[in-house]
Design a protein around this nucleic acid. Sequence first.
DNA 1: CTGATATGACTCATGAGTAAGTTACCACAG
DNA 2: CTGTGGTAACTTACTCATGAGTCATATCAG
Lengths: 213, 213
Amino acid sequence: MATSTRSNAGTKGVARAVREQQIVDAACRAFGESGFAATSVADIAEAAGISKPLIYNYFGSKEGLYAVCLHHAAGTLTAEIERTAASGTVGLARAIVTLDGMFRALEPQPWIWRLVNDSTAAREGAIDAELAEYERRIFTFGHDGVAELMQLAGNDDARDLSAMHAVWEHTFRALVTWWLDHPGETPEQMTQRCIRLFSTVFGEIDISALTAP
Amino acid sequence: MATSTRSNAGTKGVARAVREQQIVDAACRAFGESGFAATSVADIAEAAGISKPLIYNYFGSKEGLYAVCLHHAAGTLTAEIERTAASGTVGLARAIVTLDGMFRALEPQPWIWRLVNDSTAAREGAIDAELAEYERRIFTFGHDGVAELMQLAGNDDARDLSAMHAVWEHTFRALVTWWLDHPGETPEQMTQRCIRLFSTVFGEIDISALTAP
DNA sequence: CTGATATGACTCATGAGTAAGTTACCACAG
DNA sequence: CTGTGGTAACTTACTCATGAGTCATATCAG
């Protein structure tokens, strides 16, 4: 039988960049599914098929690894929101388009949603910086849409706007979370559901912007 | 100088029931402000002015103590919701009345809100039982109101109802959380704000039910 | 032989939970 | 009114598990 005690220590193995990506993939999934606090570095190492010290070699600390995951996850989601925003849709149709884009972006890797919304992560240092940047980029879009709605209604109170914005963000979160909690529903179906729900509250919506690509 | 090493071990001290209440008060605050995971039993003991083993003596475990806190907090909030529900208001006015009641109930002990909505607590055993019971009691009220709205709009899809209910619960949470994040606003002011926001979305609301006691 | 990839086997801090003992009050016998 | 034992209230000083982070070492490509 093999006398080597250290299974494959020294195997030159895969290139650092590739290995880092594998680790980040495994970590995103683990962090997203169990939360930062409940996920141990050993768990991630096992899931990635490597050993713990390699993670510290490449990422420095658990926080460091989490910050990279956050960068990936938040970057993906923010890019998607900026993409739909650039399409030029306005009003409620824009809300629908944004939700639709989010469902599609999350379909292949649904766990990154919880990663970004994880409250068990300590907000400090690199993690805080990542999240702050993410929130900064996201803020404008929701805020502008809500401001438009408020202005139409003739309400220009700044705190009312702030509160309404909070409501919109939570509504967005509610719909995405509901979708994640009810698997087996395609993004298309969920978008149609959102259109029905919005119509219930706001009356008929002009969906002309949604049928065209 | 005093030779006694054990400061006040043996002081007969206060009656168990009273001490338990003191501990629960301190624990509710600590758990609510820092979250279950980030709060250590030693922290609570210090805040309550007693030592750790006394907590284990009275509550068995950290989970046991948390379950009692949850019972207190969830009980307070649920009772408030059931109280406003019993007032017989319907439609959007009922939503406003419920929010108003919640603001008033939370004013003296705002931390219990985060306690009930804490995701860092392990949902198992007694804790899970408490939360499940709380959710069961809460569920009906929001659900009925949303069902009423959906029926009025002619939508009887069960999953649409489920999703809309999720949106309502998150909206409720958004408003309460926003209020807690913006101290210095009285329940009255916040309720007025909610009325304005609801009007923006739904048009004028019949607030006749709100002016009467 | 140097440097990159990789690991087994540690250290160390933290925080839950426990063992064993200390003191004050109370009921009751003398 | 004075001992004396029972018990409730309370503490110090531990144990023990877990999980973050480190060290010394191994293998192989160029």
